[in-house]
Design a binder for these strands. Structure first.
Lengths: 227, 227
DNA sequence: CGGACGAATTAGGTTAGCCTAAATCTATTA
DNA sequence: TAATAGATTTAGGCTAACCTAATTCGTCCG
């Protein structure tokens, strides 16, 4: 009659926590199963299943209200941020030390983030000089799990004007490549014409050609809020 | 009635192939289940199970004669060498680029070797300048799977004399650390007194203190054959 | 208020990789 | 040559993480 101890240290658990973290957004809102299922490429039933497990742990990773969605517990968030830290350190490392093209760092980091030791994490961090941001402009959580909120908003929101690029989502590698080709990288200054209904017209000082970006893609770009 | 396709790309399969490769030795002799079970930290029954699967693949990884042991097929050997290449490149990388202490590279590489992409393998190889040997003195298999046989023999064999260290097994981290402390590293010259029954007396030019090494540990050290 | 629809959950099944216990070989020894 | 010890395999289970199909819930609409 051994106490049933669920293995909480799996790649799969990592991925659920990360997805909940990402989908919950800065407000850490409850996330529903369907959305999670889509993000994870898994059947909704599988999500329900896993959420029940994560919520039933002795020290639960999530608060789960059936049919009302999940959010991370403190422990869950801590864990999610660890993985995010791994991911972003790895991306930075691949980019800076191993000369990966920016649009390829994500997939590699996605696989490795689950398997690097504390020691390797530390060595990479040291080698990079304790970076604060990854090559997409995302903040790298500190060892203690602290991460400053980014003062930024999605490009989707804007009308016309001039802005500085804060960060770019690493989820869509083709888009990332295209943006790079037009000089749209973190820190770049952007002249935006948002007059057209479904798309934005972007121009950078560096980028030779202007870029017509569907608003649907513009949500992948965040711009700095200057105040 | 979909053709049942066994997933042949798992960490577990990797580990079996690597173990068979390692235990088979340069002669690629048949390896028996118990030995494999011990090496892999798994019950003998589990080994039998896996061997049957590996032998039953459309393009089998092993030749398996029940109760007589296994050896790798050509495909199996190719695959094993890929993993060994990953492992040794990673060890070299951790050692040279990330300043790992030699006795810690093994465990980290052991985990990561299963998850690095071709691309990462290539980048690491390039960064290191296409190294031929890992920090333990082991030959790194080429991309095409070729690996030159090492002209060396175990230190266990020798009586007295002077020798050059060829390589040191990475399996026992404590031993590795001790050897390092006494200057016993690949390439080092070794003065050996093998007169005592159960142990060897080693002395290097670099190592300050002489080292008394049980013959059981001496099998972890290989010396060059000069001819 | 009664459907009806979509979202979520439950129920039951699969696969990989492991386990223990029981059965069966093999090889050696008396 | 028979007995037996030790190695190996077979048989039967378990868990994690997934799946599909069937069911249930909640909300919203006529």
């Amino acid at each position: 009659m051994t106490t049933r101890r669920v293995n909480t240290n799996t790649e799969s658990v990592d991925n659920y926590l990360k997805a909940i973290y990402a989908l919950g957004g800065p407000e850490e809102e409850r996330v529903n199963s369907t959305l999670l299922a889509e993000r994870l490429g898994v059947a909704p039933a599988s999500v329900t299943n896993m959420l029940q497990k994560l919520a039933a742990l002795p020290r639960p990773f999530v608060e789960y209200e059936p049919r009302r969605g999940v959010r991370l517990s403190a422990a869950g968030k801590r864990r999610a941020l660890e993985i995010v830290r791994h991911h972003r350190l790895l991306e930075t490392f691949l980019y800076q030390v191993l000369n990966y093209p920016i649009e390829e760092v994500h997939d590699e980091a996605e696989r490795l983030e689950h398997f690097i030791s504390e020691r390797l994490e530390e060595r990479i961090d040291a080698k990079l000089g304790r970076p604060k941001f990854d090559p997409h402009g995302h903040c790298i959580p500190a060892l203690n799990g602290k991460m400053s909120k980014q003062a930024s908003r999605p490009l989707t929101d804007v009308e016309d004007g001039e802005f500085a690029v804060d960060s770019i989502s690493d989820q869509d590698s083709a888009l990332l490549k295209r943006l790079k080709a037009h000089g749209v990288t973190p820190g770049a200054r952007l002249h935006v014409k948002g007059s057209a209904k479904d798309e934005l017209l972007l121009r950078t000082t560096k980028g030779s050609k202007p870029l017509r970006l569907p608003r649907s893609a513009a949500k992948s770009v965040r711009i700095r809020i200057e105040n």
